Amino acid sequence: MTPSNDEPLITPLPASTPAPAVNAVELDQTATAGPTDLPKVGARYIWFMVLAQFGVFMAFITPLAISLSIRVAELAPGHDEVLGYITGAGALFVMLTAPFMGVWSDRTRTRFGRRRPFMVGGMVVGVVSLVVMALAPSLFVLGLGWVLAQWGWGRCSAICRSRPPIACPSPSAARSPGSRASRPRSPRCSASS
């Protein structure tokens, strides 16, 4: 159906209504109120998360900062632009697959929980990929190793960052590494998710 000459092509937006006033005290009380059936998380859990993040970043940053550039210089002397292509391919692959992996892990139900299989799988892929990168005979294999390493360690890192707000009650989540204390949590969350 085509508009006639007297009908406007663009319809005006309705007038916006002012936002309701919010009492800061009520807002603070609702923000700190969280599910009470979750277990209190101790220092051991928090230190485990700190060490897990440290290990993931050591496995992820060291190849990027040192090893990858050395291997590119060995396999393609004088072609430093290849390093950018390899790191860009890894970032593009992770960017495109991360939403699908997140949905998949949200829908996964195993006796090990929703996230643990993805964390262990990411760690295995990351370790194997680092070995592939170290032994790569060509730039293609080196690039493939980096893409898989970035994907595997990225899975581990994402799960380490998202686990504390899901598993911890509000006061503990605020102290744990990588937490987002303002992230809404379902009242049915538990430490085993």
Results as ranks from 00 to 15, higher is better:
Q150V: 02
R116I: 07
R44H: 05
F57A: 12
A91C: 03
P35V: 07
G121L: 05
M49W: 00
P20N: 06
S193K: 11
T108A: 05
L92P: 00
M49T: 01
I10G: 02
F118N: 01
V56D: 00
T32N: 14
I46T: 08
P99K: 09
V103G: 06
S157L: 07
D106E: 04
P187G: 06
P117L: 11
W146F: 11
G178S: 04
P99A: 13
A181R: 10
L92A: 06
P39F: 04
N5S: 14
W104T: 09
S129E: 02
N5V: 06
S172N: 10
G78E: 13
V141E: 11
I166Q: 03
V41H: 12
A19Y: 11
S193N: 09
L142N: 00
R188G: 12
M49E: 02
P39E: 15
P165D: 09
W47C: 04
A21F: 07
F100Q: 02
D106L: 06
I61L: 15
V50E: 12
V128H: 07
Y45T: 09
L75R: 15
G88H: 11
A52R: 05
L135W: 05
T62W: 12
M95R: 03
R115M: 02
M58Y: 02
V132N: 13
P77A: 07
A173V: 03
A174N: 11
R71H: 06
N23R: 10
Q29A: 14
C160R: 00
V41R: 14
G102M: 05
K40W: 02
P35I: 03
G121D: 01
W151A: 13
A73L: 10
M1E: 09
G152R: 06
